[in-house]
Simulated scan of single mutants.
Amino acid sequence: MKILLPIDGSDVSLEAVRVMIRLSKDGLATSAVLANVQEAATLYELVVAHDPAVIEQVSAAAGAHTLQPGEALLNEAGIAYETEVASGDPAHTIIDILERYGCDMVIMGARGMSTLRGALLGSVSNEVLHTAKVPVMIVKLVDASSEDSAIDG
């Protein structure tokens, strides 16, 4: 099973990697696609940089750096993976990566917004959950007093 793991550098996105590793250790044959989506450059950045290639290089380097902790976890667990750093709207780009790589599932973190705030602002995980044509597992971190994370599916 090929699993897409969107990584944004947050603790909860790395917890999603740990959940995937636990599934693999429990017997699920898995491989992963670690993905990071960098938001498109702003007009200010384009004007200041004078060269769009410089912005692309900086964005690609930032994305690769963000993926490193997830790569380290998967390397330690001996799980095969591919990486993708892309630019654009996070939710739509995640769906595009999901389809291009032929992933069977997405495991991703959620920031734990309140229902009202999530309804007003939307969220990447909520949009992926409702748009993806494959199962999406949303991982949340619980408070520091608990040792395990909670998993909502």
Rank of each mutant, 00 (worst) to 15 (best):
T93P: 02
L141N: 12
L28S: 04
E15R: 12
E76A: 15
P6H: 08
V124T: 12
A77Y: 13
L74V: 13
H130C: 09
G88A: 13
D148Q: 11
G27W: 04
D8P: 05
V12L: 05
A32Q: 05
E84F: 02
I21N: 06
A40K: 12
A132N: 04
Q68D: 10
L34W: 15
S10D: 00
L120M: 14
K25Y: 06
G27A: 05
D143C: 03
A53C: 02
A64P: 00
L116Q: 09
L120D: 05
D148P: 07
V139Y: 01
G118E: 10
K25W: 04
V47M: 13
S24T: 14
V17R: 08
Y44H: 10
V139C: 02
D152C: 06
G27V: 04
V124D: 01
D89T: 10
S146Q: 08
D152A: 08
N36H: 15
A150F: 14
L73V: 10
V17Q: 06
G153H: 08
S87Q: 15
A119C: 06
A72F: 00
Q68I: 07
G27N: 07
S114I: 03
D152N: 06
T83M: 05
I151V: 14
E99Y: 08
P52S: 10
A119S: 13
L141Q: 14
I107D: 07
L73P: 03
T115A: 14
G122F: 00
I95Q: 05
K25T: 07
N75C: 08
L120P: 03
N75T: 11
L23T: 01
V139G: 01
V54N: 01
T66G: 09
D51K: 04
M20D: 06
P135V: 07
D26S: 13
E147F: 10
S31A: 09
H92T: 14
I138K: 05
I95E: 10
T30V: 13
S145K: 13
I7V: 13
A86G: 03
S31L: 00
M20V: 09
L28N: 05
S31V: 01
M108T: 02
P6M: 07
L34S: 12
S10Y: 01
D26Q: 15
V142K: 12
S125R: 06
S87E: 14
E45A: 11
G9L: 15
L14C: 02
A16Y: 07
G153C: 08
M105A: 12
S149D: 15
V85P: 03
Q57Y: 10
V47S: 11
S13I: 13
I55R: 11
E56P: 00
I94T: 05
E76Q: 15
L120Y: 06
L121M: 15
I107N: 06
K2Y: 08
S114K: 11
V134F: 11
T115S: 13
L98K: 04
L74G: 09
P6N: 05
L74T: 09
P52T: 11
D104N: 15
E147K: 11
D11F: 03
L4Y: 09
R100M: 07
G118H: 01
V33L: 04
V139S: 01
Y81W: 11
Y44P: 00
H92L: 15
L141M: 13
I138M: 09
P52N: 08
A32K: 04
